[in-house]
Design a protein around this nucleic acid. Structure first.
Lengths: 140, 140
DNA sequence: CATGAGGCTTACCTTTTTGTAAGTACTTAC
DNA sequence: GTAAGTACTTACAAAAAGGTAAGCCTCATG
């Protein structure tokens, strides 16, 4: 019953390309530096705050907290806090979160798999191009 | 022969989560504010510079040029310049570019399709949470 | 002859993002 | 008694991203 990730014929494509599309905001959260990695980490399993902090290399407490709050606000993440003496808070993906989680993970997986080829392609590029034309003249 | 987007058993997952993983850099280009939209636009068809500028709502010349250069450098975009009198430059995706293009498009499509549900979820969230515990006490 | 199109680059400035360090509160371990 | 773990928040500062406006080159148009 929930919408899958395939295009239905009902989707008018490319609304994201319009400057006022609300998708832009969501996209910003999801594709933010730590948003991507947080979703990937939570695809593995539920984590508590400090576990996530250790799992996601390089993230600061501040940014992790902020990222989690955004994704929770968007309904992607569920936060469960146990009021015990050393605080205990668990973060996990909601069904909606598993949805983009899959997309984001597919993307990062693709990049990891194709890294060698990308690196090769990078080396083929001259890296600077003040004015390099690839092809001979043609009519206007 | 080229690696698809599915996980092979050879992938050690989660290297992106390591701070020094080179994938991080690629990810940054791909998921940048204008990188995503540029890839989506180029999935439709080849565009020239000013067409892209008009297609991608809100992008400035400076940022579009910069984004295109990064993606070209990564081997995702092919730039063909015809040295005719009013300059004519065409941008299109390389086979590698079609690869992440697919992933990125799947992601934006998912967001567009599920936007209504996301918006509903957002409204359910209290939006501020100084200290909201979801569950009763439990033992340490 | 001034203007505009097309594809950029550069300088300069504003906004946003990210990081660092420290603080809070409470309890167990040393 | 003091340090450490847990989950954050806040203030301040540095870095990065983004925007604006102008310039460059050359031909066709009015």
């Amino acid at each position: 019953m929930n919408a899958g990730s395939r295009l239905g014929e009902t989707l008018r494509r490319g609304e994201v390309l319009a400057p006022e599309c609300p998708s832009r905001e969501i996209l910003k959260h999801v594709t933010s530096r730590w948003g991507v990695l947080t979703l990937v980490a939570l695809m593995e399993r539920t984590h508590r705050f400090s576990e996530l902090r250790r799992r996601i290399g390089g993230v600061s407490e501040k940014m992790l907290a902020q990222t989690l709050q955004q994704l929770e606000q968007d309904g992607f993440i569920r936060r469960v806090s146990y009021p015990v003496v050393p605080p205990h808070v668990e973060y996990s993906l909601t069904p909606l979160g598993v949805g983009i989680g899959r997309q984001v993970e597919a993307m990062t997986d693709w990049i990891e798999i194709n890294l060698p080829e990308i690196l090769k392609a990078q080396q083929r590029q001259p890296s600077s191009r003040p004015n390099a034309d690839q092809t001979p003249p043609a009519a206007t």
